[in-house]
Computed example of a mutant assay.
Amino acid sequence: MAESPQPLSAVQHSRLRLRRLPEGAPYFVQIVAGEFATAAATCPIFITKAGDTGEFYAGAMFGFEPGEYLLHPGDAFRPLDLERQGFFIDGDKIAIDPSNPRFSEQDGEPLFEAGEPGESLRRMQRLLGHLKAGVDQTQAFIQALLRHKLLAPMDIELAFDDGRNLNLQGLYTVSLDALQDLDDAAVVELFRSGHLQLAHVMAASLKQVPVLARRRNARLAA
């Protein structure tokens, strides 16, 4: 059971070490705008609602149901939100969950060396900075989609060789039809903000859905 996050302290956590992340990932992981291009090369990107708050967020899909991971090792994409596992942003400070299995006193890279942040912690500080900025950028993108009525719900139905049918619900993407109907001023606004490019990347990522479906069928056959 996870503990409450604790402010990271060179005194209290001087002996903690950071282990590598395990292979694989949850089947759907939150990502930020700066990760869209990399994610789209290997997996579909959708927008969905957080179950606890109802707020929209962007995520990369690695499988079609919990426990499924369909990316190949060579094209694995590691989202910032996954890489920061065990770490949290608490205002301008960093907090950790000491019970997270990433932390150990026996193996891994030390968080602190002689009371100063070690390389592993400096790397995490940079990562959390990118993540915090990325969340703000992504929310601005989603708000632009909502403002221009470009967010369209998707119901994806998939049939597999084992006879199972999966219906993926609660997912949203960019409506290219609605995008083409925008007036010039709205298009220029989206272009100058970088949101137009993100919209096209997100729409293009949908081609990865049948790719993942073929991989699932190949695993079933094996």
Rank of each mutant, 00 (worst) to 15 (best):
M1T: 15
P7M: 01
S9C: 10
V11P: 04
V11R: 15
Q12Y: 11
S14M: 07
P22Y: 05
G24S: 10
I31P: 11
A39W: 09
A40E: 09
P44A: 02
I47P: 03
E55A: 15
F56I: 00
A58L: 04
P66Q: 14
E68C: 11
P73V: 04
L80Y: 01
L82G: 01
G86D: 01
F87H: 00
N100S: 13
R102I: 07
F103T: 00
S104M: 11
E105G: 07
Q106E: 06
G108I: 06
G108Q: 00
G108S: 04
A114I: 00
A114Q: 11
L128M: 12
G134E: 01
T138F: 13
Q143W: 10
R147V: 05
L158C: 06
D162C: 14
G163M: 03
L166Q: 02
T173G: 15
V174I: 09
L176F: 07
D177G: 09
Q180A: 14
D184C: 06
D184G: 15
D184E: 07
A185S: 15
V187C: 04
L196K: 02
Q197R: 13
L198S: 13
A199Q: 03
H200W: 13
A203Q: 12
A204I: 01
L206D: 04
R215Q: 12
A221T: 07
